[in-house]
Simulated assay, not measured.
Amino acid sequence: MDQDKLMAFVGKFVGDLGATIAAGSVVIGERLGLYRALAQKAQTPQELADATGTDARYVEEWLRGQAAGGYVQYDDDGVYSMTEEQAFALTDPEGPVFVPGAFQLALGSLQALPQITEAIRTGVGVGWHEHDKDVFEGCERFFRPGYLASLTTDWLPALDGVEQKLRDGARVADIGCGHGSSTVLMARSYPDATFRGSDYHEPSIAEARRRAEDAGVAERTTFEAASAQTFGGGPYDLVTTFDALHDMGDPLGAARHVRESIAPDGTWMIVEPFAGDSVADNLNPVGRVYYSFSTFLCVPNALSQQGGYALGAQAGESAIRRLVTDAGFTRFRRVAETPFNIVYEARP
């Protein structure tokens, strides 16, 4: 045995173990307002506890762990602070990067450890609706920053002729909309267009309706509890699926239904996790994140549904192209990408 290689692996393990248990501390820091208060000014543990109505001894230990992990700064005089970059990523849920949401999703996913263990043993599925509520909230908070940063500024403008249609009053279907963040964001940006969101998870649809009401777009935005293979309405000028197609047990059936529901000159925008076509392409930090989430969420959900597919979060462009083509679309291209997503355009 090569001792240097062994110790290198042990070092990797220590880093991963620290990150795993620290995930809970990140969510606690966000929920208790610790990050937001510390971002305002440098403080001692007692000062931070006083500012947030928390216990100083717990806060002291929390701060030490955060400093060890590089999430806050420590000065030798016992004062803690945050850099501009740390505050940017840890305190603003409306910004393009929001770290606590990702950890909330991860912790919510891990709540299903017993069910997923049994599923791996037996091959049964675990539906999205069977997960902890932190999965639904964390999923939105993980992906929403990317939508806020790119959807109306980069992704929609990259589609052929779509932005003008939206300005002129397009009809849009948002499939697998979850809490409706993507639907509401588009509705707020294009006030002459009408939107119909759908998701098979009824509690998420109820939340989406509340979000639309709060945003003042409810008159132009409707939601229905329906699967991707049965959503109603049409013909649509634009159909969107955000990080959802790979989760479906029957994505081909969904693609065919989109094809039937779209206008002759319509567009399907497919947003999927960033992935290459081969396993080797995805052996990197982003691939590791998505393969791990896929083991707990995407593949179990697909296997809980009829259809025979379990694409997983790292399906890659070739698999998506094949589905789209098999469903009857004749044009397909990649139009945009970020470190976490790839955006495809499909047309009849």
Rank of each mutant, 00 (worst) to 15 (best):
I262R: 03
Q305N: 04
L238F: 01
G287K: 09
S189V: 00
C298G: 14
S292R: 06
Q73Y: 01
Y35L: 14
S189Q: 07
T91A: 08
T153I: 02
V239W: 01
D243F: 08
Y147I: 04
L311C: 03
G287Q: 07
G308I: 02
S227Y: 01
A319P: 00
A89F: 09
V217A: 03
P273M: 01
M248I: 02
E137V: 14
A327D: 09
N284I: 05
T240W: 02
A315W: 09
G308P: 03
E47K: 01
A56T: 04
A225V: 13
R322I: 07
S25P: 02
R31W: 11
K5L: 15
R259E: 06
S150E: 14
A263P: 03
Y236S: 09
Y74I: 00
Y290L: 13
I21G: 04
Q305E: 15
I205N: 06
T122D: 09
H257K: 05
V126A: 04
E260C: 03
R64F: 00
G69E: 13
H201E: 06
V258E: 06
S294I: 03
D247R: 00
V286R: 13
I262M: 13
Q115V: 14
L17A: 15
V299R: 13
C177P: 02
A102N: 10
D199P: 09
G287M: 12
V59F: 07
A212F: 03
P339W: 14
E137N: 10
R347Q: 14
S292F: 09
G287W: 08
K12V: 10
Q3N: 14
L38S: 12
Y80P: 08
D2P: 15
P93C: 12
G266Y: 06
R288N: 12
G127H: 11
T52F: 06
G249K: 06
W128L: 15
D192T: 12
M186Y: 03
G127F: 07
H129N: 15
A319S: 10
P191A: 09
R220W: 01
R64I: 05
I175R: 03
F340H: 12
A313K: 02
K165R: 14
T230Y: 11
L105G: 08
G15Q: 13
D192S: 15
Y290P: 01
N301R: 00
A23P: 11
T295I: 10
F340G: 11
S150M: 07
H201N: 09
A280W: 04
M7E: 06
Y290S: 05
T83N: 08
L63A: 07
S81M: 01
G125H: 12
G108V: 03
T338W: 04
H201V: 11
P264L: 07
A346Q: 10
Y58D: 12
Q115H: 14
L90T: 04
D55V: 10
F143Q: 00
Y290V: 12
D134H: 14
L283N: 05
V324P: 00
P285G: 05
K12H: 11
D55G: 02
L185Q: 11
V299N: 10
R141P: 01
E140Q: 06
G232H: 00
E272A: 12
L252N: 02
S261D: 07
H257T: 09
T91C: 13
Q3S: 12
E47F: 00
R196S: 10
F142S: 05
G307L: 07
L297Q: 13
R211G: 06
S198R: 00
T153F: 03
T52A: 07
R64C: 00
E272I: 02
A310Y: 09
R64P: 03
Q73R: 09
A208I: 06
E317S: 14
E272W: 02
